[in-house]
């Protein structure tokens, strides 16, 4: 069996695991981790295809594409992580505000 296909299948498996995690996980950080796994899977498929095109010739175009992809992926991850922190913060603040109100006005549910 061709060893290149190992990496193709490995990439596919990473992709599937990432997709599953992205949909199933509840915690946003884990969702973002899962999305990163997915992109890694895609990169693996791209690079293993680059070697598959010839016996000795390596195709540098997918390499360049993956380099671009890595940078794009770290950019989106950074924005996503800051957003997660902010969402959590504002939620906390809202809860805190509720609590203060409750202490002030006595317990009212709803």
């Amino acid at each position: 069996m061709n060893t290149l296909l190992f990496y193709d299948f490995s990439g596919l498996a990473l992709l599937a695991i990432g997709l599953h995690g992205l949909i199933r996980s509840s915690h946003p950080l884990r969702k973002i981790l899962a999305a990163n796994l997915m992109t890694s899977g895609v990169f693996l498929i791209m690079i293993s295809g680059a070697r598959g095109t010839g016996q000795t010739m390596i195709d540098p175009v997918p390499h360049a594409m993956v380099l671009t992809g890595i940078v794009v992926s770290v950019s989106t991850t950074a924005v996503a992580l800051v957003l997660v922190c902010l969402v959590q913060e504002t939620t906390n603040r809202a809860l805190l505000w509720q609590k203060r109100k409750r202490e002030k006005w006595g317990r009212t549910d709803g």
Binding site: L15, L19, L22, P28, K31, I32, A35, M38, T39, V42, I45, M46, G49, P62, M65, G69, V72, T76, V79, A80, L83, V84, V87
Partner: peptide
């Protein structure tokens, strides 16, 4: 945040298609 996650998923799918 939700928009970003969806857009990440979409881009990933698109990129694999291109590959």
């Amino acid at each position: 945040l939700r928009y970003l996650l969806v857009s990440l998923l979409g881009s990933c799918s698109y990129l694999l298609g291109v590959a």
